[in-house]
Design a protein around this nucleic acid. Sequence first.
DNA 1: TGCAATAGTTTCGACTCGCTACTATCCATC
DNA 2: GATGGATAGTAGCGAGTCGAAACTATTGCA
Lengths: 183, 183
Amino acid sequence: MFPMTQKESIRGLIARLARIDASESWSVDLNPAQRSALGYLRQANRFSRSPSHAAAYMGTTRGTATQTFKALIRKGYVSEERSLTDKRSISYDLTATGREVIAEQSVLELSLDRLSATQLGQIETGLRGALSHAIILNDQKPFGICRSCRHFEGRGAGGYCQLLSLALEPFEISQICHEQEPA
Amino acid sequence: MFPMTQKESIRGLIARLARIDASESWSVDLNPAQRSALGYLRQANRFSRSPSHAAAYMGTTRGTATQTFKALIRKGYVSEERSLTDKRSISYDLTATGREVIAEQSVLELSLDRLSATQLGQIETGLRGALSHAIILNDQKPFGICRSCRHFEGRGAGGYCQLLSLALEPFEISQICHEQEPA
DNA sequence: TGCAATAGTTTCGACTCGCTACTATCCATC
DNA sequence: GATGGATAGTAGCGAGTCGAAACTATTGCA
């Protein structure tokens, strides 16, 4: 009568999985927005850990991002550090307990456990592709990883950012950056 | 420094895609809950279109489901019909405008357009598998499609439900049912 | 020096959603 | 048949989210 297209099915699956995942966050005294803010901080490089950048990444407003970070401070999951060069800006970082909380395994991850490695790989590349298209359609910034940026230049184990004229530690080149532009 | 596992990446991807999709629903005067309620009604068979069943499917409470349906009535997207046999129960159904609204293509679907048919197939089966595990872990009902139920019996183009002792129209056997138990 | 842009914050209001309590109805059991 | 418990839907409350807009402080450009 009203057959669902494959794309509609996938849309529904994503919504349901996201809902299951979101409902679980509450059990660790984190709401979904707070959880994804923690996840963002874990991935973001040192130039991208501000409310503005988090807001751009999560598709929300700076005001909401501020609220979220303040709540995370109260709970002791992140620490705040004011910039020395620009007195307007603030940088947040995960605390040790913050890292523990974010590392806890979710029902969603347990469910993914039952899939094969190839299936996981297929899902990841597929969803990643879809997300990058969606981000373009939504006029959002890509926040890709440093290593695959046009301003990146490899140097031994680490690298160099031509935009910021800065040397990069090895671990930094696989973090995400608000300035990133695909090569 | 803190490498993400593949499962963590997928979790993040699902959350981000869901957020993009959810934020879009507002542009058609539907909130995410209302949108997924409409989506549920489109798939559900005639025995499963009540607030209770929708609540079980969506992982929310009956109270919230009622609110959602009442809002959809106000907006003219669903119609209400009281049952003749059980005076407690109500059945909702999509109106013509409700069907139009739900059929509109989303940014998420547009993004999926850029993937190949094989990729779409892989994503769908993968996510479907993950969801069915997650549902078991969460003690929710599967709401699978009629045709693949242990009470289903094929009869020509249509079928027969051994649980309800009822003949089923051809289009009904691919709808989802709250009584469904995988064969 | 002044003016616009930017970073973060605050406040307000609309809205969601879960919880609890309540009514009506059904049904199983004595 | 009565009756007690389960089940369907609903109403109202309250905590909390989130976005919009206004506001302050700082920066940097002209």
